[in-house]
Design a protein around this nucleic acid. Sequence first.
DNA 1: GCATTTATTGTCATTTGTGACAGTTTAAAT
DNA 2: ATTTAAACTGTCACAAATGACAATAAATGC
Lengths: 202, 202
Amino acid sequence: MGRPSKKEERIEEILNAFYRCVARYGIDGSTLERIADESGLKRSLVRHFAGNREELESMLVDRVLEQSQQQWSGFIESLPTKESKENCKKSCTELLLEGLFSDQYSDGEYILVIESLIFSAGRDAALRQRMQAWMQGFTDDITFILQGQFPKADNARLEAVSFGLISLYFNLDSLAPLGMNQQYRQPARSAAEYLLNSLSTD
Amino acid sequence: MGRPSKKEERIEEILNAFYRCVARYGIDGSTLERIADESGLKRSLVRHFAGNREELESMLVDRVLEQSQQQWSGFIESLPTKESKENCKKSCTELLLEGLFSDQYSDGEYILVIESLIFSAGRDAALRQRMQAWMQGFTDDITFILQGQFPKADNARLEAVSFGLISLYFNLDSLAPLGMNQQYRQPARSAAEYLLNSLSTD
DNA sequence: GCATTTATTGTCATTTGTGACAGTTTAAAT
DNA sequence: ATTTAAACTGTCACAAATGACAATAAATGC
């Protein structure tokens, strides 16, 4: 009975709007007014559905990290295992390069949001811990993938290459505000390949 | 005659304070109040000496890019030329790695400020042009250095490696808010070495 | 001491961001 | 039609950020 609730869809819209605002204006620049405009709702509705600013930010962080986790683990599981290797044309590392550097999979806003969160983490101990864990997990996973492909390489070397791949991935999308990311997409991918090749030679 | 002006030193203090604030709070988070606190002046004095917010931001951008330019060109000129090569123990590329990745030369705030400017450039066409030029000059210079060391390597390859070095440099310091930059300093440098080595092998 | 110039302090008005809430409208169940 | 629960609208109060300016204090040349 009563009018049906739109809470879930509205929260969805609001968080999507918040996400876009953060990519464009940063966290501090994403006022409730802008979020409201971006979502097409009144500011009082934003508050009605999503609570105050603190709750909103907390929900955004949860959501971003959760979605990131989902997409990433989906990607990990899509990789060929040792058993299924023979059926697959592309190697794990080739698929990794595609995932990180092909423009079809790139979400220009994603890294900007992540970087905004990292920056904010400097003033928020709880967020800092979460982002540290996120970053650590990211590098560990890549190192693990590389381990499968280059079992003979020692760990420090794998970690260095992992960090290199991540740096290329991050830096490429962080140039989006300058409109230079397309210009550097190919170089970024090439550099990533050089790093991977360095694991073959000893 | 009249009371001696402290304008220049005050502006110096104010811009330094602004710089530190930007590294900590971002541009939007650097309110005049915070800048005043950080510089130890009253807000009205900040306004008195440095003008309104718009002028302040413009001065900061000028200053950051100018100092960056000076330090960088100082570094470039300190590199051994073809003539002075024989007197020098370290190669250009070794010196480059030191400059980019040794913690003695690293200014933790510098890259954070630059990244804040790049982010802001997304909403400021004039700033965008300047930051584009800054980034282009940076990569071009590194490519040029690499050219001297690896004259046989083709240009696309050099550009890719340049972009890789810059990415490692940027990404390393952008982890400062997470306190993970020391942890990754060595991997970053190693990855940079692998990239450089990839120019030797063909 | 006096005039002059600038630093320095303090205050007020305006705008913007935020929180709270009263009142209205809408869509369902009975 | 009535009830009910929720969406929606509008508005007020408060705090923060900014801009403008008046008033005072300090340092210099004469």
